[in-house]
Amino acid sequence: MNSWLNPPGADPLVRVSHLRLDIPVRGEPRRVLHDVSFEVGAGEALGLVGESGSGKSMTTRVLMRLLPHGAATDGDVLFDGTSVTGMDRRALRRYRSSEVAMIYQDPRAAINPVSTVGAFLTEALREAKVSRKEAEERAVALLREVGITDAPRRMRQYPHQLSGGLLQRVMIASAMLTKPRLLIADEPTTALDVTTQEEVMAILDEQRRERGLALVFITHDLDLAAAVTDRIAVMYAGTVLETAASANLHETALHPYTVGLLASRPSTVDVKRLWAIPGRPVSAFEAGPGCVFADRCPFAQDRCGTERPALRTVDDHQVACHRAEELRGRITYETGGDADRAHDEQTEPV
């Protein structure tokens, strides 16, 4: 087995290895994830980054074991050494209520619109037989910790009376209530303005550090992920293409897709024609037998179309590219002319 998946010493809190997921679409199984491997240490923050349809949300649903009916998985998902896919009802209930917590992009979909913030926050505690008075005190204290000063008033309000940013803070508070060991945040700030995003991210980061929580942070924004996580896993077409330390990712990225993604983002500090990866992102089920990025990769060779590269260690990264060593530091994309147009013509729409 890959040695990086099994480092000597401590077990990671989360270990996902060679995860595969099929979901029935009109009665036929459709491949959604085909080889997802990553680890998250206790107290560590991992960014799962990728474009739409790459499988980020589906990966978290496997972690939470919240899968659509008829879904089939393969590979291992371990939490603290225990298989999440193998948990019985009771173990699963305990796992979901006290070990992991989740925050979504749209908090309004995760909160009952006709119950107050206070009722929402104290519900789980009351179920755990905490007295009403104590539950309310703990909720108010937490709201203050996430920067909500007029907490008692907010407790009596309904979700529609709160802005998106404020509601997302309530969600963070709610996630902290049960003292989980792992927090999963699926694009928690995508719907927010940048200034509100900064605010919410600062609070999330602060809470996580103070409590030593592990975090799986999902976003399509590589720069945002790099700023708030320790390591990053780049996903594409239902697989992880590269994992690396978040610091200096711009300088160290090895996979042609990671490099392209970093270069695609327009900079706020200088103007230059963007490097554009040709074509469009594909889903797992559309990928050919070889490298999932082959039809967009300017460096693809014959073997890339037939042999799927496995995730392997190069420098201190894990990278799934046949040519990682030879391309190191030499990757550039076409910036002029018709290269991007010409390529786009070859791709098929979904």
Binding site: D150, E198, E199, A202, D221, L224, A227, V228, T268, V269
Partner: peptide, 14 residues
């Protein structure tokens, strides 16, 4: 967000 950026909490509250 950009390389080297750290999110900061403002003085303002909720």
């Amino acid at each position: 967000p950009r390389p080297g950026w750290v999110p900061r909490r403002r003085a303002t509250s909720g």
